[in-house]
Amino acid sequence: MSDFVQYLVNGLTIGAFLALIALGYSMIYGVVRLINFAHGDVFMIGAFAGFGVLTTLGATGGMALPAVLAAVAAGALATGVLGAGVARAAYLPLLASPRLAMLIAAIGVSLALEEGVKVLTHARFKSYPNALDGGQVMSGAVRVTYGQLALVLLAVALMAGLWLFVTRTVTGTAMRALAMDRDAARLQGIDVERLVLATFFAGSLLAGAAGVMYGLYYTQISFGMGFLIGLRAFTAAVLGGIGNLPGTMAAGVCIGLVQSFSAGYVSSRWTDVIIFGLLIAVLALRPTGLFGERVVERA
């Protein structure tokens, strides 16, 4: 029983990161119908940006909460700007081209980012500062650290913030409208290119925050970390119904739980077999996602 609860706690933690990344896939797909293959690499760069901040601040040991928050904020901001910049340079010029063009550009961006960081870091793993090495909320059979709790709360706060932004602000409403009908959005005076950049900014920001959180949690990062995590988060976005934000959040947490339970009860070697098996099953059986909302597609 205590094993089960422990896997649940770990799964929720991982799920919170995955949900943050998955939201970016979902939002970006919503407005430009692009599966942004570079999104996992944006997440990776967020982890490195946070690493830079933490090592500069010299944050080690204890519950260095201000340092952690600063690192998450810096990582998020850096990737937000990066995401919007990449979109401006590589995707916007292709907005009117066939979708395949943008997809190929995204693969190019992904490789460029990954190889760039590989060169800059000499392909080495980096050890994240143990800024979260705090006490335990619960000890004994089930362990929950303050760090874990803080990360989950932070992720929840970011998701709540996104939700409020998308549903309660005019700009967020315009984003949803853009996802439904681009021409009709233009006729409302919406500057589509600017709003697309804003969407890339917001989606990349969440991925960057998740990157820093991942580093703090797993304490090791490398240039290649975005690939698999990105694919898992993408699976979550498909599972939740790509373009459907609440579904994506829920599915992110589900994938985190699948990952944790499969590692606990089966073997971590089987984790990706199970997750991507699930992806194939969902694509075959329920291509609109588990939560059933059909994404409006216009010819």
Partner: peptide
């Protein structure tokens, strides 16, 4: 070409 998933009030807001 109204925005189908947005409410009447939200459609007008975007107008």
């Amino acid at each position: 070409r109204v925005f189908p998933a947005l409410t009447v009030a939200e459609n007008l807001l975007l107008g």
